[in-house]
């Protein structure tokens, strides 16, 4: 049913707090430094000046950082799905002593931020000479409590008879987990993947801590390179970097928004 215009207006109004900063960022990226200095809050640039974008490409290897970021976020997202599926399956469909406690522990780990554990993890990875590798960026996030939680919740809506029938047909547990269930859980899997992808795509802290040279550096670190400390910020260049950083994530969201909305609406079984 088409939305009535007051409702549309209301929704646009609700979206503005998210849209305006982004629009301002894009607008600033097309300004020149003198324009910014004269009127930093002017809504529109005087023209589509691309100098800031040229400065971004000059300041850092955008392609290499982009590749590193993509590989890292993809690897983390796929690993998380691969491990969250059996974990969610066990926590929702298998009966064993301590299941409730195990689920509680999984949820509790959501409360522990990465900053709390970076020192022991860094020390551990340094011991085995894995700092400054893609492994150091991916491995600590291979298991996701949020992903496990989302998939476990989605699996609750899958009828146990379906799994029982598959077992009767001779399907093993791995076949059930990796072949039978994923098509039923598609919206939740996409949502879990996207949450992970976007979080790690934007992550600044962990790659900063774990990498010690440019070979595995990611795009958010590159954007931080654009920031001045001590000689005056060229905000238009920083904003151009932020636009470049955000574009792939936005594109991914645009391509998968239907699945995300399905997942958010609780249509876990994709019906």
């Amino acid at each position: 049913m088409p939305l009535r215009w007051p409702r549309r207006l209301g929704l646009v109004g609700l979206a503005l707090p998210w849209l305006l900063p982004y629009a301002w960022m894009v607008s600033t990226s097309f300004k020149t430094l003198p324009e910014l200095v004269a009127a930093p809050s002017a809504p529109l640039p005087s023209g589509l000046n691309l100098d800031a974008y040229a400065a971004v490409f000059e300041a850092m290897p955008v392609g290499a950082y982009l590749l590193n970021t993509t590989l890292m976020a993809l690897a983390i997202g796929l690993l998380q799905l691969a491990l969250a599926l059996p974990a969610g399956y066990a926590l929702s469909k298998l009966s064993f002593r301590g299941r409730g406690l195990a689920f509680g522990l999984v949820v509790a780990t959501l409360l522990i931020p990465a900053q709390v554990r970076f020192v022991p993890v860094f020390t551990l990875l340094a011991e085995v000479r894995l700092t400054n590798t893609m492994t150091a960026l991916v491995l600590p996030f291979a298991v996701s409590a949020l992903g496990t939680f989302l998939i476990r919740q989605a699996l609750l809506s899958v009828p146990p008879q379906l799994i029982e029938a598959a077992r009767l047909d001779g399907a093993g547990e791995l076949t059930i987990i990796y072949r039978l269930l994923p098509p039923l859980l598609r919206p939740s899997l996409v949502a879990a993947f996207l949450f992970s992808f976007v979080y790690h795509w934007n992550d600044y802290f962990w790659p900063l801590v774990m990498t010690t040279d440019d070979s595995v550096r990611t795009l958010p670190l590159g954007v931080a390179l654009l920031r001045e400390q001590g000689t005056g910020v060229r905000w238009h260049i920083v904003m151009a970097g932020n636009v470049l950083l955000s574009l792939p994530a936005l594109l991914l969201f645009a391509l998968t928004q239907r699945q995300l909305i399905h997942a958010a609406a609780g249509k876990a079984a994709g019906r």
């Binding site: 590193n68 893609m134 070979s215």
Partner: peptide, 12 residues
């Protein structure tokens, strides 16, 4: 993903 894990393992 496995290939990605291996990439960049060697510092410059």
């Amino acid at each position: 993903g496995a290939a990605a894990l291996g990439l960049g393992c060697r510092p410059r």
